[in-house]
Design a protein around this nucleic acid. Structure first.
Lengths: 360, 360
DNA sequence: CTGTTAGCGCCTTCAT
DNA sequence: ATGAAGGCGCTAACAG
């Protein structure tokens, strides 16, 4: 016993290996392996001895070794801005559920919205040999981003993995990605139309950052609805702000120091709507009596707002599930370069929209 | 070239390996490895050739092989009931941040509150060789659970990993675990005291499941406050329900079909408080004019309730960070069997508590 | 400076 | 029914 585990079981600290078990049971390593796999004949007596050793030594297989051999636990990776956002959380949940159902493990990484961290994360996930790498949520859509992502997508594809864009626009048909979007522009069009149909003509579009894909699309829907109703677009009625509740509140309070030249607000996000609602209320403006309010996302907390928020439902959980399903189901050989799913959105009518009130 | 990757680069589909790169650069495998590690002298010319090959072949190291060799990317695993709960999400965020800061990857598993899935998950995480396995949130605290967990903790400990109980009571001093709790009972005591100090004597304790550790502790704090104020405990004023918003609403509506024999409600959770608030409001009862309301958790959406909820702040994110910190910082040799952190809670006073209103 | 050798833990032939 | 051998991809020792 010069080298290491001399005796009857494991001596050194660290994980129990097949060798330890084999020693203890007085058999060879492959025999133990076969008992575990159970797909090969083993004498009943031997089997029992091995099983006892297995139990006594509390053996667990080493996934890394298995992965190296080719057949290890597969994993699905996802990268998001922030787990705390209700909509992201919903997507994450969908991914989890579907991945677990298919016997996959989930790796998570939070990028904080920083493209560099996102890139770094993708690299790590690639090292891990993730079967799919899912990118969740909005992004600054510039040329650098697109070319980098295209390169990454190709790399992943070549190593048998898959880049999935979830709630983010495609990179182009040539790029081997799976894209799972929802009808972002359509939802914005629908809810803005709702506001316009109720008689509103001065609709403040509030929140978001035009450089972000999500904002841009929602803004586009807003503008298209305006055009459909023959209402001129007024840049003064587009107020950029963050997607974050607190800042939206502050920004709206700021806006209210100027004359109120709108009768309705389209908040680009439910969280923004919450902030807007608070600012409005504190300013003595009733919703929907004085000002109508619409949101976007239909996250659970929106139900607790008073009045209950009329908003656009986005199937976030389904988005996550679909992402996993598509990425995993594509036949490994046939490299259909482009998979694309577009999920529908719809307006959920609650209590925050009313007819416009004529103002002095 | 009889076997496989004969020629200049990688021929077979799948990941690029060191061997592929070595072939392409016309050097041996270890040389490539050294160029990558950069901790060993390599001729500049060779180095350049290798680097080019590396780039051209888009090489990424295989974490599993590295892990097998001993020095791979470490990972931290956490298991929770549901990512969608704001408080869980906060803990998850804290874990992420701290783990990433320390160069660890995160594995996540959603158990849906099912103890069996939790057990299964721990097994998977153990196979992965996770450095720490963090269990988040409340649990059904029976004997079976305790003994099973103790066994798992010991197993993990022996393989150099660590079981971390986060927001969940310890298993006993003998069990090698890291426990990161918050002062659950104390927070409940404090906020109930607040209600009692405001003059309330009939306080309905609403929501939760007494079999769950979290509920039990909060209920205990409630009772202790009652005792401190010399108010007799009335079992009729404890209403079990779920922790879930929607069900809480329904349960409260049900309760309101009976006579209103309380002047204040202590909701065991902010989500429950939201449901209760809605039921109360719809029943024509004003908060806090008619009924005072207190919550627990201080999750962000609580700010959007009207009136803004007075509640107990729980440092969830800090809980997550601390869990990672403790688990990773303990000196590997010295097996201090028990690590225990107890984080403080405090009441956040907002607008949902007022003096009791004398009722007919 | 570079290549050869060995071995991490597992599983899959192949040969008893 | 069982053991011996080989190799997954990588890196640390040991030659040269």
């Amino acid at each position: 016993m010069t080298t290491q585990n001399g005796g009857t079981g494991k001596a050194s600290p660290g994980r129990t290996t097949l060798k330890d078990v084999a020693h203890r049971a007085g058999v060879s390593v492959p025999t133990v392996s076969r008992v575990i796999a159970g797909n090969y004949p083993v004498a009943t007596a031997t089997k029992r001895r091995v099983e006892r050793a297995l139990r006594e030594l509390d053996y667990v297989a080493n996934t890394h070794a298995r992965a190296l051999r080719g057949q290890g636990t597969k994993t699905v990776a996802f990268i998001l801005n922030d787990v705390r956002g209700p909509s992201f959380a919903e997507v994450a949940h969908g991914i989890q559920e579907e991945a677990t159902r298919r016997g996959r493990l989930c790796l998570v990484f939070v990028s904080g919205g920083d493209p560099r961290r996102e890139l770094e994360a993708v690299g790590l996930m690639r090292q891990q040999g993730a079967e799919a790498v899912i990118l969740i949520g909005s992004v600054h859509d510039d040329e650098v981003y697109r070319s980098r992502m295209a390169a990454i997508a190709t790399s992943l594809d070549q190593s048998g993995s898959r880049l999935v864009l979830c709630g983010r626009p495609p990179l182009g048909d040539a790029v081997p990605t799976t894209v799972v979007e929802y009808d972002n522009e359509g939802g914005a069009h629908a809810i803005t139309s709702r506001l316009l149909a109720a008689g509103h003509r001065r609709v403040l579009c509030f929140g978001g950052d035009a450089a972000l894909t999500t904002s841009a699309e929602r803004l586009a829907g807003y503008r298209r609805a305006l055009a459909d109703f023959g209402v001129a677009f007024d840049p003064g009625l587009v107020e950029k702000a963050t997607f974050e509740r607190g800042e939206a509140y502050l920004a709206m309070r700021q806006r209210l120091t100027r004359p109120v030249d709108f009768t309705a607000v389209f908040a680009l996000t439910d969280a923004v709507a919450a902030g807007v609602l608070r600012a409005l209320t504190e300013h003595g403006l009733g919703v929907p009596e004085d000002i109508s309010l619409a949101g976007y996302d239909d996250v659970p907390p929106a139900t607790d707002l008073r009045p209950r928020l009329t908003t656009v439902h986005v199937p976030y959980e389904e988005l996550g599930r679909t992402a996993v399903r598509l990425a995993l189901d594509r036949s490994p050989g046939a490299d259909g370069p482009d998979q694309h799913a577009l999920l529908g959105t719809h307006v959920v009518v609650r209590d925050s929209i009313g007819p416009p009130r004529h103002r002095a």
